[in-house]
Design a protein around this nucleic acid. Sequence first.
DNA 1: CCAGAATATGAGTCACCACTCATCTTGTCC
DNA 2: GGACAAGATGAGTGGTGACTCATATTCTGG
Lengths: 183, 183
Amino acid sequence: MSEPPLRADARRNRARILAAAVEVFDEHGTSASTEEVARRAGVAVGTVFRHFPTKSDLLAAIMKELRGRLAARAETLAAEGDPAALFTFFAEVVERAAGARTVVHLLAADGTDVGVAPQIAGLGEALDALLARAREAGAVRAEVRLDEVIALLTAACHGALAAGWTPDLRHRTVTRLLDALRP
Amino acid sequence: MSEPPLRADARRNRARILAAAVEVFDEHGTSASTEEVARRAGVAVGTVFRHFPTKSDLLAAIMKELRGRLAARAETLAAEGDPAALFTFFAEVVERAAGARTVVHLLAADGTDVGVAPQIAGLGEALDALLARAREAGAVRAEVRLDEVIALLTAACHGALAAGWTPDLRHRTVTRLLDALRP
DNA sequence: CCAGAATATGAGTCACCACTCATCTTGTCC
DNA sequence: GGACAAGATGAGTGGTGACTCATATTCTGG
C-alpha cells in the first residue's frame, strides 16, 4: 500500500507543479492548459502527467492541499476563542476567493467536475466548531445550520469571483451576509 | 440600418435555434458545442452560424431575450404594488437559476466571457424600482443599495447552481439572504 | 564512480470544436 | 409555375488541448 519514497528531483518537481498549477488555475480558471502549468513550473508536459495521470488528479491534489490550509485556519481561529471567529473566517475566505478560482472550486465541490466532494468533509467539521461556539455565545441565531453557512460562503465566493465585485461592494455584501446570521 | 425581413423558414429556424441553445446551455453550460445546439434544433451547423456568426453572438442573443423576460417580470411585480415584491422576484430568480446556467451567466455578466454586460442595464432599472418601493414601505433597510441586491442575487444564483443545493437548503438560504435586507 | 532504476523530455497522436464554403433546396414575387 | 435570390446543408479546415511513448537524463545504493 505504501509507495517507495520519491527521488529528490521528483519531489522537487511535484511541489513546483502544484505551486504552478495553483497560480495558473487561480488566474485563468481550470480550463487553463496543462502545457501552461508545465511551462510555469519549468518542466515538460510529460513530467506533469507522470505525477498526475489526469488533469482531474492534479485538480484533486490542489483541492486537498487547499482544504487542509483552510481547515487549519479555521482550527486556529477556533482555538483563539473569539465567539465571532466564524465571521472572521467567512470574511477571510471570501477575500481570498475574490482572486482565486480554486477556492471557489473547492467550496462548490459538487463532484461533477472533479472528484473533490469528499475534500469538504474535514473543512465542514472545523466550520461546525466555529459555528457551535458562535451559537453558544449568542453571536448567531440559534436556528442557523451548518449547511446554510456553507451555502452562504459558497455563494459569496462565487459571486465575488464571477461578477468581479469591487473591494467596496465585496465588503458591503459580506457585511450584509453576516448580518443575516446574527440574532 | 434596417434589415430586410427574414424569409419564413429562416425566422422559424432562428427561433428553433434560440430555444435549443437555451436548453443545451442550461443543461451543459456554455461549453456545450454548437453542433449539439444544431442537433437539438433539428438543423445543420451551417444554419446556426448563418444566424449567429460566432458562438458569442448566440450567447448574447439568448441573454438579451432572458434579460427582457426578467425585466418584464420585475415590472409586472412592481405594477402590482406589493411592497415586498422585491423578495418575490429574488426568490423566483434563484429558483429559476437552480436549473438554468444561462440565468447565472446573465447575472454574472462581467464582460469577460461574452459581451453581455450592457444587457444588465435594463434589468437594473426594473430592480431599482422594486427596491425603491420596498424601501419606502420600510420592507428593507434604508441603507441597502441596488448593487448589493444584485450582488446577493448573483451570489445566490451561482451558489444554487454550482453547489447543487437541494430545494430545502435553497429555500432556507434565500430566506436568510432576504432577512439580511430587512430592517 | 558505476550500473541500473527512476525520472524527465517533447514531438507526436487523437479527439473535439468553432467556423467555412461549394453545392443543393426552398420561399417569394411576378 | 418559373426565375432567382435567400437560405440550408454537411463534409472539410485549422487550431487547441489532453494524454502517450521512445529516448535521453539524472539520482542513488553499493
